[in-house]
Design a protein around this nucleic acid. Structure first.
Lengths: 193, 193, 193, 193
DNA sequence: TATGAATGAGAATTCATTCAT
DNA sequence: CATGAATGAATTCTCATTCAT
């Protein structure tokens, strides 16, 4: 039957969700397996039916979130678009993701700046955003974008959104649509020739 | 004699240094007090002569590093400088700090993206960049800098350096002086009117 | 099956029993959780499945022993009995408990003279002797018993047994049935009009 | 000089007093050497100039308090007095001590019902109240006092005061002079023939 | 699959005691 | 005599993981 499979997915998903919540709110330390199980509505031992150990649970969550982030980034994007148009779509997708799918975005930030993810598992650098890198290469060859390393380009266009996410997360600052448009302008000014 | 005072400072400093190293390499979890003590060359109980508990140790380290960072940021800076000149000096100081004082910069990144620092302490550490904020206000009123929130300005000029630090940290990317000059140009283009 | 429930009760009971023994023999200090666990035949961590912490373990034990003591005190007693008859039964029950259920009686003495039990818990344990207090009120209104505070009555009739328990405990003195009868006479002479 | 000697006595006394206070208020556990030193106004290491170790400190305090109690008990008493008069004086002395020198009395209670004092040090049973025992023997031979063991006599006359002390200590009950007179009557009624 | 009781290893923290000064 | 920094050993408690059911 399908029922069983669905249930499995449900429990695994519930565990991943619970982990996300607890790690975000209390940090990797202070997210004990017992609490994760409780929040997911299962017994502690059940976790080990779906994951090898705590590290595996975290790694799995990381990969899953990272994928959802990357997938979302390229919604409605076509490689055939103009450089500016394509960049605008991708930038807005990512902005939307970071400012709305807050838990996930926050979790990624935390993973990317702490040694809680195994180095081998971490998707290094920007490999997951390949279409954006390709777009930038095209822009550079067309002379539209400054001839800089992709790391520099990323640092000044996409990465700033992480800072704003943090500020929003802590209630220090909130962003509306107008502001978002301004922000895009800043990002574009930074890298356009 | 001065000896005693010196020794006290030495031990406290050794403990802070050991904590920095261990938290950077293994995360807040996996930096047990016993290991910190061992690396600092003291007995575990000795930690409690200088710090109330583990959280206090981390908080103290955070504030101290944050201060050293802020102090470094304004080296050679004078409020009387022109907006661009002043900004250039500060930006370069911070770039230098982030790319050379790697452990400290890395520790700050980790603290700022995870719930391991008490919110009250974080706020205390925030006040140190005031002169930069003042400079931006001046730039905005002079019409030299875009009329954006200081958070947006920070996100697009200083914060990108954190990303490059991470990439450098992982051996993915390294920055030379020419590149640093280009990077400043990008930052300036982003916020200038 | 009932087996599981029985086992749970067994372990909790074993822990309480072990605590009783160790606290009696070595005091609250010098009754470390590790020793308690060992004597009960479980791992130290297991204690925390049944009790919140050490204080909770002691409090629980206190309340349980206090209850067994009170229950025993009123065996065969009926509120309808004459004052003297009722008092005689209760006094003898308590004497029997104190001189035979030595560990428990000793533990209660220790708790009642040291700050090791939370005040709130102590008060909760106090309510169990109500029928005796009622009996005394009746005796006072009938003019059979001196019109004194219940504390004074308790101090001169029941409390003396604690002293004899201590002396017996230390091998200084032992009590036989004849002596017990004399002792009752003394108690009765003390409070009768 | 005398000054030094006086100082020594002062510090030793201060340490004993501090110990008394802390053990009474928080129990033997929770009366750490560091706190005792602080309350006495000396450095922790200083304790070891006056006492061998913690147990020695407690033992010394016990013996000292026990002696002060015994000495006080026989103030104004003469062996030549009549049995009732002598008993009345002694009983009142002890009542006065227990109800006024509360800390000391309370400490003795705690020591006498817990294993915190070395068995070898404890002044066993009633040996410290010899003149009272002699008086009772005289009373028994004169037929004025019931022919009971001294332990029974003590249990019903002096020991009840400990219970009232505890009640007073906890604010449950207070005793005025009239009540004290009544209480003496009860004690006397208990043991007189 | 799912469980929850159980635990060994280790975590933070405390404390009686020592020792150089 | 006096100190206070220092500590080894122990203490309470936590937690990832297992195992019988």
């Amino acid at each position: 039957m399908m029922d069983k499979k669905v249930k499995i997915v449900d429990k695994k998903a519930a565990l991943l969700q619970a982990t996300l919540t607890l790690v975000n709110n209390h940090g990797f330390h202070n997210a004990p397996m017992a609490k994760i199980a409780k929040l997911a509505g299962v017994a502690p031992a059940t976790i080990y039916l779906y994951f090898e150990n705590k590290q595996d649970l975290i790694n799995t969550l990381y990969l899953e979130v990272k994928k959802s982030y990357s997938d979302f980034a390229f919604t409605n994007y076509e490689a055939s678009m103009s450089v500016k148009k394509g960049f605008e779509i991708i930038w807005n997708n990512i902005a939307h993701y970071k400012l709305n799918t807050i838990s996930e975005a926050n979790f990624l930030s935390q993973c990317d700046t702490s040694p809680m993810i195994d180095e081998a598992i971490r998707i290094e650098g920007l490999k997951n955003l390949q279409p954006l890198l390709d777009l930038w290469e095209k822009g550079k060859s067309e002379g539209i974008i400054k001839p800089l390393s992709i790391y520099a380009l990323y640092a000044h266009t996409i990465y700033p959104l992480s800072f704003l996410l943090e500020m929003q997360q802590r209630g220090i600052f909130t962003i509306d649509e107008t502001m978002k448009a301004n922000m895009f302008q800043v990002a574009w000014d930074a890298i356009k020739t």
